[in-house]
Nucleic acid binder design. Structure first.
Length: 310
DNA sequence: AATAGTGACAACCGCCGCTTG
DNA sequence: GCAAGCGGCGGTTGTCACTAT
């Protein structure tokens, strides 16, 4: 036996509120207050459910509400509080005068979540994606870790997709390698770049001139075969930078397949680019100079996962 | 110009816990 | 102590405007 509904569904209006309805509700509440929501629509002459009236009032009509854009400070507060309270929107909104739980929730779901993802941070745990993967790798035995990692990637699929689609970083490996072959001197530090920097300055990665080591911190990479790959004269990865400083630990090796960039040849075999020569060059550079340090991981995603994502 | 896709926001739904009789 | 009712909450869906194709 369920609960008795708070109003008779057949006799109530639903959907968008009209200005007239807003006026009726506001006027009534100004005179009588907000006690007994069940009685308010009846007394105010509204064909609405009491619950609907309450929502309309608390989320929109209340005079103390702010209706404009969220400020940077407000966003920062939301992110901080969300890292502590999770989806306790009411709790969070109480710290933001003039904002309702619905406002905060909507803003989080439409903007902040993606913003965090764009920075390589899992919006649920507020940890860098690479940390989560590394945790999985270090806490579980390889078979379970691989399984869980696949599940995790499934969970992060939207975020990863967002990164790949919205913030693509086309790393022109050919130009980079050519440049490095000329230099004959590779410093692993030079290929480490902080994710935020990378997001801000993607051209650093596509430039024929390698990025500035001054910008280097550390990073892990997710590599998925780009669908433009076969058509490009140069081999390209679609790379997304994850992680923060300190990520470059051996434990952050790929838990999907156990492959690191040392196994680029395998990746080559999988992808079968027409320009395999670049892989030879890549391996040469890698072997000679440790271009990708062990901590810099190419996530060699299983084909079915890639298919899912792409 | 038409259509599809996306983002932002508003509103609804169902569950839960507290209050009240 | 118990059940009904209410208000609050978080998740989900609907709607509209704007943008891209």
């Amino acid at each position: 036996m369920g609960r008795i509904p708070c109003c008779e569904k057949d006799n109530v209006k639903r959907g968008q509120w009209t200005p007239e309805e807003d006026h009726k509700l506001s006027s009534y509440i100004a005179q009588h207050g907000t006690r007994h929501w069940r009685l308010i629509p009846k007394n105010a002459g509204l064909q609405r459910c009491g619950k609907s009236c309450r929502l309309r009032w608390t989320n929109y009509l209340r005079p103390d509400l702010k209706h404009g854009q969220f400020t940077d400070a407000e966003e920062e507060t939301i992110v901080k509080l969300h890292s502590v309270f999770g989806n306790r929107w009411s709790l969070i909104s109480h710290q933001l005068p003039g904002r309702t739980d619905n406002d905060v929730k909507n803003h989080w779901n439409t903007k902040l979540r993606k913003k965090l993802s764009g920075r390589g941070i899992d919006p649920v745990t507020h940890k860098p994606f690479s940390h989560l993967m590394a945790e999985i790798a270090t806490t579980l035995a390889p078979p379970q870790a691989a399984h869980l990692a696949e599940a995790a990637i499934g969970c992060f699929k939207d975020e990863i997709l967002h990164l790949l689609n919205k913030k693509p970083i086309n790393f022109n490996i050919a130009n980079y390698i050519n440049h490095k072959l000329e230099e004959k001197e590779i410093n692993a530090e030079k290929i480490k770049i902080g994710p935020s920097k990378a997001m801000q300055e993607p051209e650093m990665l596509s430039s024929t001139i390698p990025w500035d080591s001054a910008a280097a911190t550390s990073a892990s990479f997710v590599a998925a075969p780009c669908n433009i790959l076969p058509t490009m004269p140069e081999f390209q990865f679609s790379l997304s930078c994850f992680g923060n400083e300190g990520d470059a630990s051996p434990s952050s090796q790929s838990v999907c397949t156990g492959s690191t960039v040392d196994q680029l040849g395998q990746l080559q075999g999988k992808l079968e680019p027409e320009n395999g020569g670049y892989f030879e060059a890549a391996n040469e550079v890698i072997n000679a100079s440790n271009i990708f340090s062990p901590g810099c991981v190419l996530w060699d995603l299983p084909d079915d996962l890639v298919t899912l994502m792409v």
